[in-house]
């Protein structure tokens, strides 16, 4: 289990993260979301031990990531990993191989073959997506207990994305690994993450189960025979609303049945409940906080 307590950090004199508290149970895939510059990458670097926190602690089963025994269980894949001019996948693997005893060469070979990568070719000659695939192949082959991925899907084609998702799910199911993945593609995260944490205004504004998060919202499309009064939805827990002629589309926070009853009382000619996805829930939450 990962325990983050009262974590704060500054970059160049500016506070980036303030009083982060987060618990991540073992065997979960957690999506780390937030707007650009929210501090997702900084949090992952603090969690991996790349940055030393100004305040607070990160603990993996009670141990600090500063301890090298703990770090044997952690692998961090940054959004733009460095490679030297002559580096190949094989030479990168040579660095990690002696340090991570659990590295599974069969998995590595299988992934390199499935991604159709030439392990002896310099990484600089690879496309952005191929580089991503190469690093993901190494990260997954290392079989870490805790895998921290920063913008892991950036540049990957749909087939590679699917493959990576399957491999991550397999890691969690077979090895009980914990995966923390930051991404801007919330629809992608919703597909395979079971938990989420939103970083907003330097702190974790909400976290928990993705399905529970989505269930807190409901979306309705209503059509009216006459012109719609401006204040028709007053008194309802509206998160966002769009009007188009005699149509209204609204996202509400609360129990779907209760909202449905209250909307029916407005006597719409047509009323339809639509599914709310994680992206909408995230946008609603962040927008609402900005408005406050």
């Amino acid at each position: 289990m990962i325990n983050i307590r009262d974590l704060s950090h500054c970059l160049g004199g500016t506070k980036i993260l303030d009083n982060i508290n987060l618990t991540i149970p073992d065997g979960t895939i957690m999506g780390l979301v937030g707007i650009n510059g929210a501090g997702k990458s900084t949090l992952l670097r603090l969690m991996s031990g790349v940055y030393i926190p100004d305040e607070g602690t990160v603990c993996y089963d009670g141990a600090s990531p500063a301890d090298e025994k703990t770090r044997e269980n952690i692998f961090f894949l940054p959004d733009d990993p460095y490679f030297t001019h002559q580096a190949t996948i094989k030479s990168m693997l040579d660095m990690y191989k002696p340090l991570y005893g659990r590295l599974d060469m069969d998995v590595y070979r299988r992934l390199v073959s499935e991604f159709e990568l030439d392990e002896k070719k310099p990484i600089r000659t690879f496309s952005k997506g191929m580089r991503r695939q190469a690093y993901i192949a190494i990260a997954i082959a290392i079989r870490p207990k805790y895998l921290l991925l920063d913008e892991a899907f950036d540049g990957l084609d749909p087939l590679a994305r699917q493959k990576v998702k399957e491999e991550l799910i397999r890691m969690v199911e077979d090895d009980g690994a914990t995966v923390i993945i930051s991404s801007h593609s919330l629809r992608e995260l919703e597909d395979f993450c079971d938990r989420y944490a939103v970083i907003d205004r330097m702190t974790v504004s909400s976290s928990g189960d993705i399905s529970e998060k989505v269930e807190r919202y409901c979306k309705f499309m209503l059509a009216f025979a006459d012109d719609i009064p401006e204040n028709i939805l007053d008194g309802l827990p509206v998160i966002s609303m769009t009007r188009s002629g005699k149509f209204i589309k609204g996202v509400f926070e609360g129990d779907g049945h209760d909202i449905e009853e209250r909307l029916r009382a407005l006597a719409p000619t047509v009323m339809e409940q639509m599914p709310v996805d994680f992206e909408e829930a995230f946008i609603n939450e962040v927008t609402r906080r900005k408005e406050k």
């Binding site: 770090r71 044997e72 940054p78 460095y82 340090l99």
Partner: peptide, 18 residues
């Protein structure tokens, strides 16, 4: 002295002192 390189070095299971 390269931030990107440190991302790939400082999480390795070796203490900075070593």
């Amino acid at each position: 002295k390269n931030r990107r390189n440190l991302d790939t070095l400082f999480f390795l299971p070796v203490t900075r002192q070593k």
